[in-house]
Nucleic acid binder design. Sequence first.
RNA 1: AGAGGCGUGGCAGAGUGGUCGAAUGCGGUGGUCUUGAAAACCAUUGUACCGCGAGGUACCGGGGGUUCGAAUCCCUCCGCCUCUGCCA
Length: 424
Amino acid sequence: MLQVANIIAEKERFIKGLEKRGIADAEALLNEVIALDDDRKKTQQQLDTNLSEANSISKQIGALMKEGKRGEAEVVKSRTAELKTLNKSLGEQLNDFQERLKQALYNIPNIPHDSVPVGKTDEDNEEIERVGDFPQLADNAQPHWDLIKKYDIIDFELGIKITGAGFPVYKGKGARLQRALVNFFLDEAVAAGYAEVQPPIVVNEASGYGTGQLPDKEGQMYHIGSENMYLIPTAEVPITNLYRDVILTEDALPVRHAGFTPCFRREAGSWGAHVRGLNRLHQFDKVEIVQIRKPEESYDALQEMCDHVSRILTKLELPFRKLRLCSGDLGFTSVLTFDYEVYSAAQEKWLEVSSVSNFETFQANRLKLRYKDENKKSVLLHTLNGSALALPRIMAAILENNQTEGGIKIPEVLIPYTGFDLID
RNA sequence: AGAGGCGUGGCAGAGUGGUCGAAUGCGGUGGUCUUGAAAACCAUUGUACCGCGAGGUACCGGGGGUUCGAAUCCCUCCGCCUCUGCCA
């Protein structure tokens, strides 16, 4: 969430930033925050003064009791009774202001980067790079949902039987290819300097708030009612929350982590006729990369992460494009996001396979993730993350783009991982 | 899951109603000494909020309560340990 001090100091910039996201009453929203913070401060000042007085009276009483002057002590007590009533109500007011301030801040998104183009939907995203050539497929080329049946490598019906729609079962060479991709992605990430972690895939409420999925995306996560926990929608949540309530020393930076997890998304309301096969699932596998950086380094880190995604897509020989998300498509917590889409040739569609974002201090502020600078001051860090990569759509593109009469060719880099070079 | 025990500063570990933000040791930082290092000695060493400042307030797992006053007593939640049960 945003920092109140920054809102006060740079109000105009924040208003413009929120308006860029299409929030009409941005100024009113920020004024409310500032007013609540002001109320909070005033209430706290009054409360602190009263507490100070009550503390000193208590000490007096202690001293009097020790000297055996019970009568005098009783006299002084009358004032403390007064203060007690007063402070109880001040304390309630303070809690109320703090709670309202928190709620207000939870519901305000991050301020977009200057380079973020203004736009409403994904159609307004800015294409900034295109790499690789479209494959020339035969006239009878098939989309992946037909190919998986033809070669019996992914079974949606079985998934429906044991769970429901959007939970496919990978079989045989399909399962092996899936595992090959996971291992390839992890090896690439480790080689690029990311320390591998294997986090829990169920998280508590505090973690959900830490990275901003709560309260914003509550309805998109699977909730385990009996435990009040959530199935993770991305490894970003557990990995970034590793650093919740942490003050890092400078020599621990930069932090780079990579982790493989299944991801779970309810995708409520986002299903449609255009969504078929592997294009959108409730459960899918993903390797995620996360960085924690000093503020002045975070945009270099963002570039570094983008380069990493480009590199592995190139190695997989998949045609892809890089997009700068417009203000309307930008995630709630993000300042700047680049999406990567691969071209899936039989559907003739671009499929999003990665999203790389810099959140600056938005998550760190909630997480209380800081480091001690050279002056021993606590400074909020910047958090970043990116998919490297999400599996199903990569799988879809490989199946479609590499189909031949004789079967589906496995990209060179994956053959050591699959142990075969053809799905037939 | 049941019974019992426990949760204190970076770590270890005192503290069971007042002067305790908290002894002591270790670790960290600065200094003295030394050619340098070690040892020794001295000093310093949590976080957040409010305040121009002096300073004030809060925090001893989280929340609530009793009391003039709570690390200390009570309730509750969370976590950890031991034993019993179950189990990959």
